[in-house]
């Protein structure tokens, strides 16, 4: 279980890093290494060159303002999770981050690294899609913004080009009259979950006017389902059952060593009801606070 040999560079500027990537078709970015190093050690990946971006300046920022939360490529999960402004502007970010791996992994792993690693079992890619966030990348052609919907193209596959570096992620702020919730079921707290669901619900006069839910570990790519129609304004048991049916019609849970497809479907159903209810409550609370 040792990585195959590779060349290692640790550039001190973004320009040098881009050059190193452009110079070799089999070069790979190394950020926190918490997903990449296991892949190298198991020899599931054997890049010729690793471009360690940990020495790049000005990429470890976490900024929250009225628009939303901006997270630099070198901000560690732990740093984002600790930030009180992030929690205020978009509470779904810390709710989900608290279940990303164990604290020790969060001390090194980056949130942007997790987003571009594009694992459908990971929390943050799903949250980015659910919130309609985006990732900014820089490549030989300059900077571009990739909307979350265009970022996830297949299992562990993002639409980033091999010579691009993700520099910043953007999670939009919680909108007025909206609420969020997240819950997942894992064998052990901190492990990849067997199923996880997040929801964003908007209310007007207490009635649900929009509801979307994001799902992890029950599809190939992070999945988002619009439940507005199925709920028809309410979160009664009957409405929640309709919402779960609507979600399961598009999800594709699979069996693996951790759980059967049936069990994952069951979890998706139960969690849909729980998080939609919780997000509805949060939305009403949020709406009341705005009025007072």
């Amino acid at each position: 279980m040792k990585p195959a040999p590779f060349d290692y560079v640790r550039p001190g500027s973004l320009g040098e890093a881009l050059q190193a990537l452009a110079g070799h078709p089999e070069a790979k970015v190394l950020a926190g290494g918490q997903s990449l190093v296991p892949l190298l050690s198991m020899r599931l990946a054997a890049p010729a060159v690793l471009v360690d971006i940990n020495g790049l300046p000005d990429l470890d920022h976490v900024r929250a303002d009225a628009d939303g939360v901006r997270i630099g490529a070198l901000a560690r999960h732990a740093q984002v999770l600790r930030d009180p402004d992030v929690a205020r502007v978009q509470p779904l970010v810390p709710l989900a981050l608290a279940d990303v791996a164990h604290a020790t992994i969060r001390n090194r792993g980056t949130t942007v690294g997790s987003l571009v690693h594009a694992d459908a079992a990971a929390e943050m890619p799903m949250v980015l899609r659910l919130l309609d966030g985006s990732v900014d990348v820089v490549g030989p052609q300059g900077r571009r913004t990739i909307a979350a919907d265009d970022l996830y193209v297949g299992p562990l596959e993002s639409s980033l080009h091999h010579d691009e570096i993700a520099v910043e992620a953007f999670f939009p702020a919680l909108a007025g009259g909206s609420g969020v919730a997240f819950e997942e079921i894992a064998r052990r707290h901190g492990d990849y979950a067997m199923c996880g669901v997040a929801a964003v619900v908007a209310v007007e006069d207490g009635r649900v006017v929009s509801a979307r839910a994001g799902y992890l570990s029950v599809s190939d790519v992070p999945a988002v389902v619009d439940l507005t129609e199925a709920l028809d304004g309410e979160t009664t048991p009957a409405a929640l059952a309709r919402a779960a049916d609507a979600a399961l019609a598009v999800l594709e849970p699979e069996t693996d060593i951790h759980a059967t497809a049936d069990y994952r479907a069951h979890l998706a159903r139960v969690l849909t009801a729980r998080v939609v209810t919780a997000a509805h409550q949060h939305a009403r609370q949020h709406a009341r606070q705005e009025q007072s």
Binding site: Y8, L30, G33, Q34, V37, P38, S41, D52, A78, A103, T104, I105, N107, R108
Partner: peptide, 9 residues
């Protein structure tokens, strides 16, 4: 801060 030494070069 605690980190995994097996996941760092």
């Amino acid at each position: 801060a605690p980190m995994r030494s097996c996941l760092t070069f």
